[in-house]
Write a protein that binds this DNA or RNA. Structure first.
Length: 809
RNA sequence: GCGGGUGUGGCGGAAUUGGCAGACGCGCUAGAUUUAGGAUCUAGUGUUUUGCAACGUGGGGGUUCGAGUCCCUUCACCCGCACCA
């Protein structure tokens, strides 16, 4: 039996030690520089931890542990994002109480996370379903309400019949619910909205300051979807006082507008439709209403529409143009109406072709018999714009419109207000009372938290009322001041509410009086490093930025942005390179690996698999290899009797080669951890061990330095060997090793000699040997002289410490 | 369709500012040790070739003394958005 360490014993021992000694407790009052490193807190699902979780958690843990050793005061917390649909669905399906079921799941997650040895400050654990926590979620909502950022509106919403609730735009993907993949339909309903659009410009422009992956920033930019253009007002012919406002990015093409299109849901349609067209229009609107979002967009390649019989007057030349309705114009964007310029917009072109509407060229350069011309060119058929390019023409047209008050410059966003209410039980109650007289009254702040009542029937009614509507005791209230009767809001908040500010609560998790002490917020914000999955690109990460900015405006938080640096960990795929799923049978359970190989091995392997942000396939052999490396370290340090090996010696004198490798290792590992290049850092640790095996003796200081560098990745074995090295304090309390630049560099360097770019010889020279000397030495090499014989040297390139390249003919 | 990204051995992946392609690990081969091993140690391992050498970073072209790296073009795959006026 080969020597191997007993991971079960060691891991349990050190986990207990850390707990007993509160090794990772953060001190708010220390003078050290701060480092706030955060994981996206998990949603505690019934399935337990997935191998994807430890990837990001290990990455942040390595940084947290290294930074502590480097003298930082580190805030590294964890908690539970525990409200939300999946647990509730499961509870419904199985007859569980969601509160109980969630608590159970949290215990499972906690046990699993603890078994992996992460250095969280467990005294700061939070839970979004805890009334002491959601008190402040509700408090934030009230502040938004008071600022006019939370309002009720009757809007066409995304209604998901299967889930019995409405969903935000961000939660609908390809016409289906993000959770569960159920169909979603459009339905007008009165709902709570948060005015995220008021922050559209700041959410967009402040992205530039963030150290985030470019792809995530780009997704947010696209989601916000700023576009610049103009609003143009068209009078409706024969209906004095009635007008249609359109938004266009190409006001320069106004002379080419040959018809208008309203969204089928547009309010004006009923007022302007002519008697003879009414049947057509009604039939078309019915047809559209029956279509799902998916059918309206994805599947709909051919244009459809109906003529209203009415005409609008083009403000620029008074020309009468027909008004149509068509579902390629969306009621949710701009003003729900467009001016159609078929010559220079491919959608309008397609529509005009199909319905035989006129096409006029106003920008030269294309071939309108084939397709619309989108590009830039000289304007034609456009009176005062003729001869101008696109940019000047746009400016001139806007000036013209503004002068006559028939239009103006306008910026439009694709971003919609955030639909905030859910007709579900398992969420924070919205703290508002609807009074008898129709007014709304916020629940007084001193009455918060407004607790979610315990109730038997949590099934969504399906009518658009929350299950809370069944709880008559809870619902009915009487205003103590006026005696007026009222009814509580029965909708709850979406899952994204609690996660939009949780990183603030970690800073001061037990504060009874405030969301968090402003002084502490000042000390800890913003988050220095935030790691999590890319699936939250436009959900959590956009909502959290919005709330943070609103709180910034209220003076609650001291920074404009919550997360300075963001990193997305990649997905861990099954060994068949497919996404892990039960049905494919390729799921790896972290518990099994912790039992068979140990937590240190799992952590090491997940960091060694590849770059942190890449999707990499799981490999059985790979995890064996990581375990083998730890065994190899153990055998180097520990003898058969479990004592420190005799090879590790205080008096050993290292040879310069080994010394160099050590200093290189300190340099590379320190830099690579900082840059989150964990796979290459580990490769360097392996190189060091390979070299160490070749030594008769290893100086103790180097042996210690190695363990310090290993311990952020493999903390249990790190602590165990550290104590064998004679330390009675955790390795966490030691100072990070440093390297000596002078010991890194060799005095002698190998320089390659190329002839026509091909390597023909190698020279060993003193470091810093001049170009001229290198050239001379190269020419004298036998192998080189041979190749130069009978040829003409055209050019010699010499780069000191690198190479000599001789070009011959 | 639009936007972003990725293509390197049998596999996961390394390669500052253009300067020895393939670090490290897995797998494989051989040897040592062992009663035995799927344990451990040592050596080897891009392809072709007996060798010299030639070829080699998805394909094609270019810039350069020199290209995985820069430019053009093309193909494949992945992710996001998708009638946004």
């Amino acid at each position: 039996m080969a020597l191997a360490f007993d991971h079960r014993k060691i891991e349990a021992k050190w986990q207990k030690y850390w707990d007993d000694h509160h090794t990772f407790k953060t001190n708010d009052d220390s003078d050290k520089p701060k480092y706030y490193v955060l994981d996206m807190f998990p949603y505690p699902s019934g399935k337990g931890l997935h191998v994807g979780h430890p990837e990001g958690y290990t990455a942040t843990d390595i940084l947290a542990r290294m930074k502590r050793m480097q003298g930082f005061e580190v805030l590294h917390p964890i908690g539970w994002d525990a409200f939300g649909l999946p647990a509730e669905q499961y509870a419904l399906d199985t007859g569980h109480d969601p509160a109980q079921f969630t608590e159970q799941n949290i215990q499972t997650f906690k046990r699993q996370i603890k078994s992996l040895g992460f250095s969280y400050d467990w005294d700061r654990e939070i839970n979004t379903t805890d009334p002491d926590y959601y008190k402040w979620t509700q408090w934030i909502f009230l502040q938004l309400y008071k600022k006019g950022l939370a309002y009720m509106a009757e809007v066409p919403v995304n209604w998901c019949p299967a889930l019995g609730t409405v969903l935000a735009n961000e939660e609908v993907i390809d016409g289906k619910s993000e959770r569960g993949g159920f169909p979603v339909i459009r339905k007008p309903m009165k709902q709570w909205m948060l005015k995220i659009t008021a922050y559209a410009d700041r959410l967009l422009s402040d992205l530039d300051e963030l150290d985030w992956p470019e792809s995530i920033k780009e997704m947010q930019r696209n989601w916000i979807g700023r576009s610049e253009g103009a609003e143009v007002v068209f009078q409706v012919d024969g209906h004095p006082g009635k007008s249609v406002t359109v938004f266009t990015t190409r006001p320069d093409t106004l002379f080419g507008a040959t018809y208008m299109v309203l969204a089928p849901e547009h309010k004006l349609v009923d007022k302007i439709v002519t008697a003879e067209q009414r049947n057509d229009v009604d039939a078309y609107r019915q047809e559209v209403a029956a279509k799902s979002d998916l059918e309206r967009t994805d599947l709909n390649k051919t244009k459809t529409g109906a003529f209203t019989g009415a005409y609008a007057l083009n403000p620029v030349n008074g020309r009468k143009i027909p008004i149509w309705i068509a579902d390629y114009v969306l009621i949710t964007y701009g003003s729900g109406a467009i001016m159609a310029v078929p010559g220079h917009d491919s959608r309008d072109y397609e529509f005009a072709q199909k319905f035989g509407l006129p096409i006029i060229e106003v920008v030269a350069g294309g071939d309108l018999s084939k397709e619309a011309f989108i590009g830039d060119g000289k304007h034609v058929n456009s009176e005062f714009l003729n001869g101008l390019g696109k940019k000047e023409a746009i400016m001139k047209m806007i000036a013209w419109l503004e002068e006559r008050q028939v239009g103006k410059r306008k910026v439009t966003y694709r971003l919609r207000d955030w639909l905030f209410s859910r007709q579900r039980y398992w969420g924070e109650p919205i703290p508002v009372i609807h009074m008898e007289d129709g007014s709304m009254k916020p629940v007084p702040e001193e009455e918060l938290p407004l607790r979610l009542p315990k109730t038997e029937n949590i099934r969504p009614s399906g009518t658009g009322e929350s299950p809370l509507a069944n709880d008559t005791d809870w619902i009915h209230v009487v205003d103590p001041e006026t005696g007026m009767k009222g009814r509580r809001e029965t909708n709850t908040m979406p899952q994204w509410a609690g996660s939009s500010w949780y990183f603030l609560r970690y800073v001061d998790p037990h504060n009874k009086k405030q969301l968090a002490d402003p002084e502490k917020l000042k000390r800890w914000l913003s988050v220095d490093l935030y790691v999590g999955g890319a699936e939250h690109a436009v959900l959590h990460l956009l909502y959290a930025r919005f709330w943070h900015k609103a709180l910034y405006d209220l003076g609650v938080v001291p920074t404009k942005e919550p997360f300075h640096k963001l990193v997305n960990q990649g997905m861990i795929l099954g060994s068949n390179h497919e996404k892990m799923s039960k049905s494919k049978g390729n799921v790896v359970n972290p518990d099994d690996i912790v039992t068979s190989h140990g937590a240190d091995t799992l952590r090491l392997y997940e960091m060694f698999m590849g770059p942190i942000d890449a999707a990499v396939a799981w490999s059985e052999k790979g995890i064996d290899g990581s375990r083998r490396f730890l065994d190899r370290i153990w055998r180097l340090y520990v003898d058969v009797n479990g004592k420190l090996s005799e090879a590790i010696s205080e008096t050993a004198v290292p040879d310069t080669e080994f010394e160099k490798v050590y200093h290189q290792t300190v340099k590379k590992v320190t830099e690579d951890y900082e840059a989150m290049h964990f796979n290459t850092a580990i490769a360097q640790l392996m190189t060091f061990i390979n070299e160490a095996y070749k030594q008769e003796q290893i100086p103790k200081t180097m042996a210690e330095g190695f363990i310090q560098m290993l311990s952020p990745v493999a903390p249990h074995i790190g602590e165990e060997i550290w104590s064998l090295l004679g330390h009675d304090q955790s390795v966490e309390k030691s100072a990070w090793p440093s390297y000596d630049v002078h010991k890194l560099a060799e005095k002698q360097i190998e320089v390659i000699v190329q002839v026509n770019g091909k390597i023909r010889a190698r020279l060993t020279v003193d470091k810093g040997t001049s170009k001229e000397a290198l050239e001379k030495r190269a020419m004298l090499e036998a192998a080189i002289a041979q190749r130069l014989a009978g040829k003409t040297v055209k050019k010699v390139v010499a780069v000191p410490d690198k190479l000599v390249n001789i070009v011959v003919r």
